[in-house]
Design a protein around this nucleic acid. Structure first.
Lengths: 196, 196
DNA sequence: GATGTTTCAGAATGAATGTTCTACAACGAG
DNA sequence: CTCGTTGTAGAACATTCATTCTGAAACATC
């Protein structure tokens, strides 16, 4: 009953994630978004309200995708402790594969410190990630995979810190050795926590 | 032989550090700088070239001050290992004292990813910091304060990662427990590395 | 084929940005 | 005092930004 839209919701959001992730919020202009996303001005404003609206949706989508994949790994069958190791290794591998490139969440933490709505989205995702670690470690403890005196909460929180620390340093050229050694030491800590 | 200037170099730079640190580069406007720094437009441009010039100077000053204070602590008399502990504890204490507030270096890493000059300044400071840790840990090893099998490089790199990881998380509300546990675990790792 | 509705494409708008220009003020030297 | 120099104050400028507005285009229905 009307002219068909020329864009696909999913593609637009995906493109927005890409642009905002690579360039940040301020350095991505509306004209640029229009050009790269294949959506016209009017539709963008009709669909998302404004630039910030699109950003928030993109941020949420990025976090959802990023964290979901980790949670699936953490909750998958087999040894929960091994799953934790897999996620940590994977996080590090991702960093080393795209040096300089980056996690949108890290950018958002720094960029949107005064935007409560954006902060809430980020916090939610980080919390989900941490809970994922915590549940896996809790299960590992129940299964006797880690020593009784180890506190899963503390380990989970440290893993989160390490992950986002890696996320920042990955933005800094010449930090590959730092990331490598950090992960190596982290894995050693985990190894020591293991019930042998 | 001319009209005396109405501003003090040091004050201007100090104010610029404060503003850029709190708000970032993009969100700090030239009018705002003029208003808060007590320097007039013309003088700002004459003295620093442009806004970015002032930012680079401010970034350098911040890094200089921040890292210098750590290096002094790390190289001070007494046990080098204890000095490392002091700096780590101090870094964490600073974070917990100003939650949400932040290290200008962390912001710069994220904000200025395409600015080679700014990146160079940041890298230089981070390297200095890491070398400070490394030298202290090296001395500690010579003195037999840490176990022979411990590699100071790896430990130093990990400490850097942890510090800047803390710097990011400090921007995220509700991360105080994460920071606390991370430091606690970090100190435990150091404790285990100690030659008892 | 005409009508109604939704999308599209781009011009128009108004505010904010960084930077430059202009006129005036304050000093030291002659 | 007068002149040359340097700093100040703020107007003026060009650009860019996010956003809104305008008119044509593309479909479904009648």
């Amino acid at each position: 009953m009307a002219r068909p839209r020329n864009f696909e919701e999913a593609e637009v959001l995906e493109g927005a994630v890409k642009l905002f992730r690579e360039q940040g919020y301020d350095n991505t202009s509306v004209p640029q978004l229009i050009e790269k996303l294949g959506i016209c001005r009017q539709s963008l404003y009709k669909e998302y309200g404004d630039k910030r609206g699109l950003y928030l949706r993109a941020l949420e989508r990025w976090g959802q995708r990023e964290i979901d994949s980790k949670l699936i790994l953490l909750a998958s069958e087999g040894s929960p402790f091994e799953n934790v190791l897999t996620v940590v290794r994977g996080w590090a591998a991702y960093a080393s594969q795209c040096p300089g490139g980056g996690c949108m969440t890290v950018t958002a933490i720094v960029e949107t410190r005064d935007d409560k709505e954006a902060s809430a989205i980020v916090e939610k995702q980080v919390d989900r990630f941490e809970r994922g670690f915590l549940e896996a470690l809790g299960k590992a403890k129940e299964l006797g995979e880690i020593k009784p005196k180890i506190r899963p909460e503390r380990l989970a929180r440290t893993l989160i810190s390490a992950c986002y620390g890696i996320g920042v340093l990955n933005r800094l050229e010449g930090s590959a050795p730092r990331i490598r050694d950090t992960v190596s030491l982290l894995l050693e800590v985990l190894h020591n926590a293991r019930q042998s």
